[in-house]
Design a protein around this nucleic acid. Structure first.
Length: 448
RNA sequence: CGGGGCGUAGCGCAGUCUGGUAGCGCAUCUGCUUUGGGAGCAGAGGGUCGCAAGUUCGAAUCUUGCCGCCCCGACCA
C-alpha cells in the first residue's frame, strides 16, 4: 500500500480526552476515531489490526473444534423474557422499538439466541458435544465508557457456546477453550494469565478470566511469577486428548483477581520473590453455567436412558476490539506503537527518503515489488515529506520492520533496515536488506 | 448513577471574572529556501464561539433550559 493512497489522519498532539497510552496512540496514529461516547469508527490502519486479531481468534477457535456462525446484532425482547433476563439486565441493555412497536434490543451477548438456535436442531446426546461461536458487534450501554476501545459501549466480541450432555462433557469443552485462549493471546504477543473468577450462583471452579498484565489495567490481580514462564501449548496440541493435566499445571499456581483474592492462601502458596501484585486487562473470560439457560428455555437433550434433561452449557468470550488496545498497552514506547508481527497492520514500512529522485524512486519501487510479491505487507511512504517526519511517523505507526532507502545510502549501494521492537538498525546492500526483511517476516509469521 | 470539569478553526489552547462583534501554536494552501530523525521565511484560507430562549443599544462573555464530552467513584468483555 502506498501511503499517498492510504487514509492515515495523524495527530501530532495528543487529544485531551485520551488518558491511557493505547487510546492516545490509536488516535494519534489514525487508527480510530470516536463517533460518540464509547463508539468508534475503525480507520484503515486500526481496521487492519482488528482484522488480524479477529483472524487469530478465529483460527484458534477452529483448531479447538468450535464452529463459526453469525448471529444478528438486533434481538427480540421476547427471547430474553424466556430466560428472565429482559427485566434483570438493567440499563446496560440498549432497548429499541421497531416500526410495529415491537420491543427489540441491541444484543449485549447471545446466550438466549444460541440456546434458541440449538434447541431447534438438537434432541439427542448423540449430537453432542457442540461448540458454536461467532464474532459480532455487541452493545452495552456502559454508565461510563472510557479508555478508548478498551472499554467502549460498542465492541467486537468473539463468543463461543458449548453444549454437552453432562457435566464431565462440559468440563472437556471448557478445557478446550482454556487451551485455545492460551494459544490465542500468545500468538498476539501477549502473556495472558488465567485467573480464577467469580462463578456466581453456579459455584464450582469452572470460570477463569484471562488477564494481560499492564500498568493501565482496570483490575488489580495477584499471581505467581512462575506462571509467566509456563510454556504455551503448541500448534500440534490434540484437542481431543485429555487436556486436564495441562489445565491442572496452569491452575496449580496461584492467580486471582481482586474479588477472588485470598491473601493468606497467596502467601502460603507463593514465595515472596514470586508474588506479583499488579494491574491487568481482562481479555477473555470462560465460564461454565450448566442449565442456567437451557432449563428455562427448554433446550432438552435425550440421554441414553431416554430421559430428557437440559443441556450443559458454557460460554467463552474474547474482547476482540479490546485486544487492539491491550496489545498497544503491552507493546509501545515514547515514540509510538511497536506491533508484534502477527497483528501488525503492515509487516514493513518502506521509507523513500527522497521522493522524486530517480534512483531512489526506482530502488523503492523495486523493493516494494519484491516484498509484495513475496507476500509481505508493505506500507510504502512515497510522499514528498521530509525524512525526519517520515521516520517519526513510521515509529508512531509502529510497523515491526522499516526499510529505509535514500540517495546517500544508495550511492554506496546500501539500504537501511530497522527493527521497531528494539531499534536495531543495519546498513546492507539493497538486495540483502530486502532479503533480510523478507526472511524476518517469514520467520516471524511461522511461529505459531 | 453520585461528585467534579469542559464545549471557541482539523488538533492543542487563550479570551469569559470586568459585555463593544474573535485570537495564538500546530496542521492546511501558495511561493522561495531547505531535505538522513516531526525545517525556515513570506503570504493566504478556514470559526452559526455546542443548541435554544432571555437580559441589553450591543452577548463567546451575563441568566435560564437543553444537548454533547471528559475526569474521580460505584459497575463491566
Amino acid at each position: 500500500m502506498r501511503l499517498s493512497r492510504f487514509y492515515l489522519p495523524l495527530l501530532k498532539e495528543t487529544p485531551s480526552e485520551a488518558q491511557i497510552v493505547s487510546h492516545q496512540l490509536m488516535l494519534r496514529a489514525g487508527m480510530a476515531r470516536q463517533e460518540s461516547a464509547g463508539i468508534y469508527a475503525w480507520l484503515p490502519l486500526g481496521f487492519r489490526v482488528l482484522k488480524k486479531i479477529e483472524q487469530i481468534v478465529r483460527e484458534e477457535q477452529d483448531r479447538a473444534g468450535a464452529v463459526e456462525m453469525l448471529m444478528p446484532t438486533i434481538q427480540s425482547a421476547d427471547l430474553w423474557r424466556e430466560s428472565g433476563r429482559y427485566d434483570a439486565y438493567g440499563k446496560e441493555m440498549l432497548r429499541i422499538k421497531d416500526r410495529a412497536e415491537r420491543e427489540m434490543l441491541y444484543g449485549p451477548t447471545n446466550e438466549e439466541m444460541i440456546t434458541e438456535i440449538f434447541r431447534a436442531g438438537v434432541r439427542s446426546y448423540k449430537d453432542l458435544p457442540k461448540m458454536l461461536y461467532h464474532i459480532q458487534w455487541k452493545f452495552r450501554d456502559e454508565v461510563r465508557p472510557r479508555f478508548g476501545v478498551m472499554r467502549g459501549r460498542e465492541f467486537l466480541m468473539k463468543d463461543t457456546y458449548s453444549f454437552d450432555a453432562d457435566a464431565a462433557g462440559a468440563r472437556r469443552s471448557y478445557n478446550k477453550m482454556f487451551v485455545a485462549y492460551l494459544r490465542t493471546f500468545a500468538r498476539m504477543g501477549l502473556v495472558s494469565i488465567p485467573m480464577r473468577a467469580d462463578t456466581g450462583p453456579i459455584g464450582g471452579d469452572l470460570s477463569h478470566e484471562f488477564i494481560v498484565l499492564a500498568e493501565t489495567g482496570e483490575s488489580t490481580v495477584f499471581c505467581d511469577r512462575r506462571l509467566l514462564d509456563l510454556a504455551v501449548p503448541g500448534p500440534d496440541t490434540d484437542f481431543d486428548q485429555d487436556l486436564q493435566p495441562l489445565i491442572d499445571r496452569y491452575t496449580s499456581y496461584y492467580a486471582a483477581t481482586e474479588e477472588k483474592h485470598d491473601a493468606k492462601e497467596f502467601e502460603a502458596k507463593v514465595g515472596a520473590a514470586d508474588r506479583i501484585a499488579a494491574r491487568g486487562i481482562e481479555v477473555g473470560h470462560i465460564f461454565y453455567f450448566g442449565e442456567k439457560y437451557s432449563k428455562p428455555m427448554k433446550a432438552m437433550i435425550a440421554g441414553p436412558d431416554g430421559k430428557e434433561r437440559p443441556a450443559e452449557m458454557g460460554s467463552y468470550g474474547v474482547g476482540v476490539s479490546r485486544l487492539v488496545g491491550a496489545v498497544i498497552e503491552a507493546h509501545h514506547d515514547e515514540a509510538g506503537c511497536k506491533w508484534p508481527l502477527p497483528v501488525a497492520p503492515f509487516h514493513v514500512g518502506l521509507i523513500n527518503l527522497k521522493q522524486g529522485d530517480g534512483a531512489t524512486d526506482s530502488a523503492c519501487a523495486k523493493a516494494y515489488e519484491a516484498l509484495t510479491q513475496a507476500g509481505v505487507e508493505v506500507l510504502y511512504d512515497d510522499t514528498d515529506k521530509r525524512p525526519g517526519e517520515k521516520f517519526a511517523v513510521m515509529d508512531l505507526v509502529g510497523l515491526p520492520h522499516q526499510l529505509v532507502i535514500g540517495p546517500r545510502g544508495l550511492a554506496a549501494g546500501k539500504a537501511e533496515t530497522k527493527r521497531r521492537a528494539d531499534g536495531h538498525r543495519e546498513e546492507l546492500p539493497v538486495e540483502e536488506a530486502i532479503a533480510a526483511v523478507k526472511k524476518s517476516v517469514r520467520d516471524g509469521l511461522a511461529l505459531r
